[in-house]
Design a protein around this nucleic acid. Sequence first.
DNA 1: CCATGGCCATTTGTATACAATAGAGTCCAC
DNA 2: GTGGACTCTATTGTATACAAATGGCCATGG
Lengths: 219, 219
Amino acid sequence: MTKASDRAYAVIRTMILSGEIMPGAQISEEALARRCAVSRTPVRDALRRLEADLLIRRNTSQRVFVSEWSRDDIEDAFDLRAMLEAQAARRAAERVDADGLARLVAHNAAMGKAVNAPNPDIAQFLEHNRAFHEAVLDAARSPRLASLLSRLVEQPIIWRTAQNYNREHLLRSYREHEELLEAFHRQDGPWAASIMAGHIRRAFHVYLDACLRQVEDAA
Amino acid sequence: MTKASDRAYAVIRTMILSGEIMPGAQISEEALARRCAVSRTPVRDALRRLEADLLIRRNTSQRVFVSEWSRDDIEDAFDLRAMLEAQAARRAAERVDADGLARLVAHNAAMGKAVNAPNPDIAQFLEHNRAFHEAVLDAARSPRLASLLSRLVEQPIIWRTAQNYNREHLLRSYREHEELLEAFHRQDGPWAASIMAGHIRRAFHVYLDACLRQVEDAA
DNA sequence: CCATGGCCATTTGTATACAATAGAGTCCAC
DNA sequence: GTGGACTCTATTGTATACAAATGGCCATGG
């Protein structure tokens, strides 16, 4: 996957998520092509994908702008994500096999290790957290669910605020995953769904707080 | 919207939904371009969109195939659709204004008229049914929900079987919509969600029956 | 008979040129 | 000064040529 259009996708996506291009700003295919050192053709390809991800929007005449996220947008996205991830957890609990369970346990153990170390390794924690949720989605065995969720998980700013999580938040995430694992072990779909819904819901509030703090910092 | 890439999108989509190209069949950009009388460039554009709609899939080397729908796939899609449309109904009940309500009432009245006529007008019924669900989605005011649902509503074969609905089914749909309107009128989100979930669920079984009948016909 | 390796046909990926269109600014008439 | 038409520029849309990669086929050797 070292193709030009994949590179373009990755570059543009990072520029948007990191805030390098401001929400609401117009971006031209030409400019992006120069920035990625490829022609417009792969850029157009990448833009179609980013449009499906809802990271960009097009006005009536197809000009491209970086999506803006209002407080309502964010709440809406978390609502949907909570619902879909809960459904993923329910399905996973009913379908997970020994192998899948083992991978989930491993990822969560790594998360625990990362956060309990004398110097917590946040990057490591986040990576295993991502992998854990991905493994849940795998165990759910629903390509459609996976496709829908991929449109909701990445939001701008989350990147910039992820580092703000304190040790207490990380520990709680870890423990909620532990509980999820127990629900999986007992193949209790409804229980798993409840835990996951709460887990995402809590993440929503942490996220909101982080946004607030960021606004304060800016002032 | 008379652009080549939009025409290509519409043509290819229709070919897939109508079954003109079989599920699992490989389709080449070149062949589609000839079929649509445009160059490969707009075809590639259209394929990206169809990929987001899950109507096509790509193998590891990016070759394009028409998606296949197993019984599990169909059930999965309806599960998700029931969940998301229920959420749309809940939000709509809590947010709908007089204008939106009026449009919903109008569409459902048209549905009632179409099915109660001496010669039921199925096409008319289906069109207003589509418009009704779209109006619910509008009233929900969640662009994300709309974006996710658009990926689930169209499945192959549904087109071909839609004509198989009998008058009883149509009447029940009409009455369920009536009940939904009452929930909207009372701004009762949970009630609206329940009705909608059941509504989609019932449609699922009608759909399955139609598929079965089709298999019998073929034999 | 099967495995393997290389060649050829098919298919997708990228660059570029040019066409079409929307937006912005300007100038003129009123 | 304001409205409107016009032009000019920025931006997207399409076609085409060529490059790269994949997959199938056949020959060759074990």
